[in-house]
Design a binder for these strands. Sequence first.
RNA 1: GCCUGGGUAGCUCAACUGGCAGAGCAACCCCCUUGUAAGGGGUAGGUUGUGGGUUCAAAUCCCACCCUAGGCUCCA
Length: 588
Amino acid sequence: MEKEKAKKLAILRHSCEHLLMQAMLRLWPGKIIMAMGPATQDGFYADFETRGGLKITPDDFPKIEAEMQKIVQEKLPFKKSVISPQKARQLFADNPYKQEWIDEIVQKKEPITVYYTGDDFVDLCRGPHVKNTGELKYFKLLSVAGAYWRGSEKNKMLTRIYGTCFPTKKELEAYLKQREEAQKRDHRRLGEELDLFLIDETVGPGLILWQPRGAMLRKIIMDFALDTYLKHGYQLVFTPHIARIKLWQQSGHWDFYRDSMFAPFKAENQRYSLKPMNCPFHVKIYNHKIRSYRDLPLRYTEMGTVYRFEKSGVLHGLTRVRGFTQDDAHIICRRDQLENEIQQALKLTVYMLKTFGFRQFKVKLSTRDPKNKGKFIGNDKDWELAEKFLRQALQKEKIVSLEEDRGGAAFYGPKIDVVVNDAIGREWQLSTIQLDFNLPARFQMRYTDQHGQAQQPFMIHRALLGSLERFIGILIEHYGGAFPPWLAPVQVSILPITKNEIALAEKIALRLKQAGLRYEIAASNQTLSYRLRQAELQKIPYLLILGAKEAKANKVVFRRRGSKEQKTLSLENFLATVNEEIAKKKLL
RNA sequence: GCCUGGGUAGCUCAACUGGCAGAGCAACCCCCUUGUAAGGGGUAGGUUGUGGGUUCAAAUCCCACCCUAGGCUCCA
């Protein structure tokens, strides 16, 4: 049923894409060379080349949409026709993209179908389509972008228009509203509004400056993660931000990853580079001693700050940056421990993500593409073994909706990635658990087994939150900036109504401090309304209001973010209530 | 890196085809002393991203670079 619906929607949207192209060709005859355009999950897009210096911008949308509506009014039927290759080549004589398609269809020995709408528009298309353009009433053009022909960097860049289409007005409006909602939650916008972080052009793109509130949030997350890992048998380590190139040559990063590393610099005749990964350091710590089979597994964890030279066009707020801190760990273990370690790591992942309020996950197994072995390091046997172990662990944990990404593995081994759904249904890849047999071999990691023989251990990389920057970005959007009390940088706003209550406010603040709460006193000479509004805009979870009445009765007025309900209670009762909510990491 | 927009006060944004750079919020000062989402008045704040060019005159036009948005490619 669901599938049927999705199929119908895709047909509607693909038809709408024809409608768009027809309108474009009517508006700018001879200047638009259409390339291709499918339906997507949210709508459709159309790729085309522009000629004669024509540039399409969102300013043109009203004009294009009006033209599309005209064609809708015309109720032109979609007419299918099967034609010969010769006819097709002739029909699209001046369109190199369609020629390329035709060649391919001919090669595959498939029939060539075209769809007409009216006398003026025909497109090479497999179909199917709606009956006529009159069905395509509820559409909207959304954005303009550049896109490479056939998705290859080597090809020409075309212009792409994204749009969407729904069977009813209501659904279209709901979709547009949800888009707006997503924009309101944009972590870049909230980062500014809530004073969490900033990016300064002079410091450099993709480098985050954490303001006090953002830094507090980061500390809370970091502390929680580290405490949890320590409880689960990890050991804390710290390693430097730079290392000699020699290290990266030994690890293989220099060969496989150099393009994404910041260029090396020299000091005393030695070349150094910023670290793009923490692994080699952890390996060095392991290798510092002769290890016994009894020592394993060893689990090293670190809040490791790494620097990667991401191309300028891919940077995005907190979610794609050039300097970030991973909640990294490397588990070094024997083969007989491998499966259990992977399983435990999976369990820990689920625990962490649930604690942070994510309810839905999807797991992706990324394996090597056997057809593209050059992209990966190591031999077939190791890869097969590693992939087998990951599969088994997933099965044992009964992880749902497993999806395989062939070719998605790291260059040194296969991995399990966890994708979460946020509060408004968007997907984010967060946790990763990766198996590595490259580094143990390259660094000649060893342990002595019960027979006194040297053995090579296995290594698991895992980052459960991924990068703190990215994780916080996602968390901001997930909660729309309204963090649960345990995460909120400021948990309580104390609002004395008049000057007379300021001394009391300070006394109460002292008690909150003792109780380990994070608070602010909002005592400017502004009206209470004004200060309440500020506290709500700052999304502070708990509000304490103090007036003459409360002072006299030795009580406080307690309100929660987003609610007008309030309670008058003693300070100790308030503390008991909120401390419990915070300890239990409850949502507000 | 590529395509198309954009960069104006701390923030959000104005300024018609080149002609004195402006508003709201925030900041600061004063008044109001506040009872549940913006009380009132005033002050200050700018080499219009950077560098070059065209022009009597440039935020506006041209060139280069930097940053940024939406995408594409990429994300070990």
